[in-house]
Simulated assay, not measured.
Amino acid sequence: MESSSAAVTTTTAAAMEVDATANPPRQPSVQFAQKPNFRPLKAHEISGGQIQFRKVSVPPHRYTPLKKAWLEIYTPIYEEMKIDIRMNLKARRVELKTRPDTPEVGNLQKCADFAHAFMLGFDVIDAVAMLRMDELYVESFEIKDVKTLKGEHLSRAIGRLSGKGGRTKFAIENSTRTRIVIADTKIHILGSFANIKVARDSLCSLILGSPAAKVYSKLRAVSARLAERL
């Protein structure tokens, strides 16, 4: 009796396995919701309908260059970025504000950075790249932040930064894909984060007294590594 019951149990289990393989249980279908597609909010919508302003001061030595290059500055800001711009002659500053058709609220800050870069001494052709690329910014420092120099020592340091006919400065710019402005004892660098770091290290080496030939050799190695990353 026991053997017969065991055989019946084995036969029943085998039949259940056959039925399970022949007719597997149906899995409930899972439907995923589609990703919502929202239109980008405009500047006046993000700020609750209020107009946002930015003001950029104009140094005395950049007032004449600003008048000459005004159309080159006005056209991309007004037509491409959809930002209103005007020159306040009494306060000697450039004023920017958003419009109802400004596509993004970040355009206002980009235009302010573009105008500020021009006031620091960069050409319009170089500074306008800040409107079209997000990873560009300006870093500024002074020679005394690296080393305290006075008199002729300071003059020689500035000469080492520029080089004969500006060769050293141009070499650093071309190797690191940056733009450098040397205004008295202040240095301004325009570029991406990694490129600015390389250019700043080279300029600091020159300030500390390294010869230009040694800085050139380091730049070749660093520029080769940067090219490999790209």
Rank of each mutant, 00 (worst) to 15 (best):
V18F: 09
K164S: 14
S175L: 09
L120H: 10
A91R: 11
W70K: 04
K35G: 00
T75L: 06
V124Y: 09
K35Y: 03
Q52V: 14
V105E: 07
A221V: 05
Y78T: 15
A13Y: 03
L71F: 10
F53Q: 09
G159D: 09
I46D: 03
S140C: 09
I73E: 11
L136M: 08
M1R: 04
R200I: 01
A171Y: 05
V128H: 06
S210W: 01
F170Q: 13
L96D: 07
P36A: 02
Q31R: 08
C204G: 01
T64W: 05
A157T: 00
M119N: 10
L208V: 04
V198D: 11
A212E: 11
I187K: 00
Q27C: 03
A115T: 14
V58N: 09
D123W: 02
T10L: 14
K214I: 05
L66Q: 06
T64F: 08
F141P: 04
P65F: 12
V124I: 15
I46S: 06
M87Q: 06
I172H: 02
V94Q: 02
R229K: 09
D101A: 08
L108T: 08
L208G: 00
S217I: 04
R177G: 02
G121M: 07
A69C: 15
R132H: 14
K164T: 04
I189E: 05
L226K: 10
R26F: 09
R177L: 14
A33M: 03
A199D: 04
K67M: 15
L108K: 10
E17C: 04
S210F: 02
R229Y: 01
G159A: 15
A127M: 13
A212L: 00
F193N: 05
E104Q: 13
S5G: 00
I77E: 09
K150R: 10
A91S: 12
V105Y: 15
S192M: 04
S4G: 01
W70L: 11
S205H: 04
R160E: 01
S140P: 00
Q52S: 14
R39W: 07
K186H: 07
P40E: 02
K186A: 13
N174M: 13
A212F: 02
L149E: 09
V8S: 11
K197M: 07
F118M: 11
F118C: 13
E142Y: 03
A213F: 01
I85T: 07
K55D: 06
F141H: 00
E135S: 12
A224V: 01
I207E: 01
L149S: 12
E152A: 14
E135W: 00
Q109K: 15
L108Q: 07
S3F: 05
V58L: 12
A43N: 08
K150S: 13
T9W: 02
T11L: 14
S202H: 03
G106H: 10
T75N: 05
E95S: 06
R92T: 04
A15D: 06
K97A: 10
S29F: 04
M87G: 00
R229P: 00
A129T: 03
R160Q: 03
E135A: 08
P211I: 02
F193C: 05
T98Q: 11
P76N: 01
I83V: 14
A221I: 08
R229G: 00
F114N: 01
L219W: 11
P40H: 07
E72L: 15
A20H: 04
R220W: 06
R93C: 13
I83E: 06
A227M: 04
H44S: 09
T178R: 03
A6V: 08
F170P: 00
E95L: 12
S223Q: 12
G165F: 12
E95R: 05
